[in-house]
Simulated assay, not measured.
Amino acid sequence: MKNWVCALTVTMLAGCGYFGAPVHEFDSTAKQLNLTNTVEGSWQRVCFITPYTDNQRAQKVLGFSFDVEKLTRIKNNDGVTLLVFIEDNQVEHYFETPRSNIDFTRITPTCIDREKAHFKLESNSNWTRAVFSGKGE
């Protein structure tokens, strides 16, 4: 009986836990990344939210409120970048991308229109970094 109660308690507690935003990884072996072709939806722009961003900073980047503190791990996790896809000043969808997959933390500008969401991927043996190119090649 004790084992059954323990198992039930653990299951209930796990159901209350936070598991973070959806996670998406890209092909980090490619030379280029075109988010227009890679990320579905009718989004008009993508914004890159970097580690340790709170709700106030996210609002400045996005131009509207979005509860990154509740919905994502970005405020306390330096291992991810949050990509937020926006249509008509509303979040269409968002996901975290591990920096160990592709590091988007140095992207400027922080928000990019869909038709310009093209990046060169620079790799060395330890990491892959996205660099904004603004055009397909």
Rank of each mutant, 00 (worst) to 15 (best):
G136S: 12
R129S: 11
G79W: 07
D27V: 04
E69G: 14
S28H: 14
T29G: 04
F119Q: 04
S123G: 09
C111Q: 05
L62G: 11
C6M: 12
T11K: 07
N37M: 12
W127P: 00
H93W: 00
K60W: 04
F132M: 09
L82K: 04
V68C: 09
A30M: 11
L83V: 00
E115D: 09
L8P: 00
V91I: 13
N124M: 08
F132L: 15
T11M: 15
A21L: 00
V91D: 12
V84F: 03
C16Y: 14
N101T: 08
T53S: 09
K135H: 15
A14W: 15
E40M: 09
T97K: 03
E92V: 08
I74E: 00
W127C: 09
S42F: 06
A14I: 15
F64P: 13
D54Y: 12
A21I: 00
S100T: 15
S123T: 15
T108L: 08
R45G: 04
W43L: 04
I102V: 15
D88G: 00
N55P: 03
E40Q: 14
A117G: 06
V23S: 10
A14F: 12
K70S: 15
G63V: 06
I102K: 03
N3C: 10
T81S: 11
Y52D: 01
A130H: 04
N55F: 02
G41E: 03
S125C: 06
W43S: 04
E137D: 13
N55Q: 00
S42P: 01
Q59G: 07
L82V: 06
F19G: 03
A21F: 01
G17D: 10
M1V: 13
P22V: 02
T72H: 10
A7T: 08
V5N: 10
S125T: 11
E122S: 14
A58Q: 06
L121I: 09
G17Y: 13
L83W: 00
A130W: 06
R45D: 02
V10K: 04
C47Y: 02
Q56S: 14
L35D: 05
E115W: 05
I112Y: 04
N3Y: 11
P109H: 05
T53L: 12
D27P: 02
S42W: 00
D67I: 04
F26M: 04
W4S: 15
N126T: 07
